[in-house]
Simulated assay, not measured.
Amino acid sequence: MTNQVIEFAPFHLSPNKTEADLLEASERFQNEFLDGFEGFVRRSLVKHADGAYADIVVWANDSASKKAVAAAGDHAAGQAYFSLLDSAREHQPRKAGAMEFFQVVGTYG
């Protein structure tokens, strides 16, 4: 049995931002924050056909995930990454039991 935790964080890009902007900020966030964060295992940035994105992050345990979430918004690279997200547009919950497919646009770790 493992204590790993999977964080699924869906989002949409702000209307004036591009996927290239996202990938650049994602690399920076990875290199400057996540790679050095204790308990980080791996991360995939994925894109749905409808234009939604999601970060799928695997943490060694619940404690590591909670510490990272609390610290990410205070880090310059985290702030730059999160500034690209459309905070006015809420993620629509997916239909329960429905299979969905995402294209991987970045893998880290």
Rank of each mutant, 00 (worst) to 15 (best):
S44I: 06
F101S: 14
A68R: 01
L22P: 12
F11Q: 05
A96V: 10
H12W: 12
A76R: 04
T18S: 14
E32C: 01
S44Q: 09
T2I: 13
L85Y: 05
E7S: 12
A96S: 10
S44T: 13
F29C: 07
E32W: 00
Q92G: 04
R43W: 07
G73H: 04
R43N: 06
K17F: 01
N61G: 06
K95S: 09
G73A: 03
F29I: 02
P93S: 03
K67S: 11
R43L: 08
T2L: 06
A72R: 11
A9N: 13
A9G: 14
L23S: 02
K95Q: 15
S87C: 04
F8C: 12
L45V: 12
S44M: 14
F29V: 01
A25D: 06
A64T: 01
A68C: 15
Y53C: 00
N3A: 08
V105Y: 01
G97Q: 09
F101R: 13
T2Y: 11
Q30K: 04
H12I: 00
R94W: 13
V104F: 02
V46Q: 09
L45K: 06
A54H: 03
F82E: 11
M99I: 13
L23C: 05
A68E: 09
A98H: 07
D62F: 06
G78C: 00
D35H: 14
Q79H: 02
T2Q: 14
E100I: 14
R89P: 14
F40T: 08
A96H: 12
A77S: 10
V57C: 01
V58E: 15
K95D: 13
R28K: 09
I56K: 00
K95F: 07
K66S: 03
F29P: 05
F37Y: 11
A52D: 14
P15E: 15
E24H: 04
K47D: 03
G109R: 03
E100W: 09
T107G: 04
L45N: 07
E38I: 15
L22E: 15
A72P: 13
P10E: 09
K95W: 08
A80M: 00
K47E: 05
A68G: 15
D74K: 12
G97D: 13
L84W: 01
N61M: 04
S83Q: 08
Y81W: 12
S63R: 08
Q103Y: 02
G109C: 11
T18V: 08
V104E: 06
N3Q: 12
G36A: 02
A25N: 11
S65W: 15
A52C: 06
N31G: 04
Y53W: 06
A60T: 10
H75M: 09
A71F: 07
G97C: 05
P93N: 04
D55Y: 12
W59F: 08
V69D: 15
K67Q: 10
R94H: 05
M1S: 07
F101W: 10
A49M: 07
K67G: 02
Y53G: 00
A80P: 02
A96F: 15
D86T: 04
S26N: 12
N16K: 07
A60Y: 00
D86C: 02
A88L: 10
